[in-house]
Amino acid sequence: MATKQVKTLKIDGMDISSIQGSSILEVAREHDIYIPTLCFVEGLCAVGSCRLCLVEIEGSGKLLPACTTQIYEGMSVITNSEKLLKYRQMILSLMFAERNHTCAVCVSNGHCDLQAMLQILHMDHIKVPYMFPRLKVDATHDRFVMDHNRCILCSACVRVCDEIEGAHTKDIEGRGIKSNIITDFAQNWGDASSCTTCGKCVQVCPTGALSEKGKAVSEQLKRRSFVSYLKSMREDVL
């Protein structure tokens, strides 16, 4: 295999070099530069859908998602600015307003990535009116619960189920604001015969949308390192 080329770039003024093909996010993380993310899960395909990781590229007016944009020679990335903060706050507001995130009564209260993001982005209120949709809670599965009220449609569960577990039990139905996570033929999770009850989706879900039954709020901590581990194992085999 040909050796990969090294590219040099700047992130927030710091000179950095890394191998070709890496994303801005990967390189930033290697160097402990924090960029907010919600839809990105290490080991799964990056989709660029939550838009929180948008960064500025000097000399280009466009904002680009750090999770899907590859580095190139001489690029200069700004990961934090007043403009970016303002945009990220509005995007997070839109996420909160879309469904019903009442943290006080949520199983993930205290260890939810969405909730934590409020603090990271210094927010004490939501900038847009809540939409209060009426959504279902699917508790038909033996071990897990899906609460659509808490879902931010990041598609991590869909991806892990397809890319890592290979079951493809989950997908998205509809489009636009009517998008919704489904299991098999949009049926109850408990009746979805393709589900292997592996629980990977629960682990990658950044919110309380997917949770384990019979566990106290304090026990709902999620573990995700298995994803990149399984992915690298698989790559070795191939």
Partner: peptide, 17 residues
């Protein structure tokens, strides 16, 4: 709003708002 694919947050929710 009704033609948004729903993949990204600003368009999916922003157009409705």
């Amino acid at each position: 709003m009704s033609e948004s694919c729903g993949k990204c947050v600003p368009c999916r929710v922003g157009t409705v708002q």
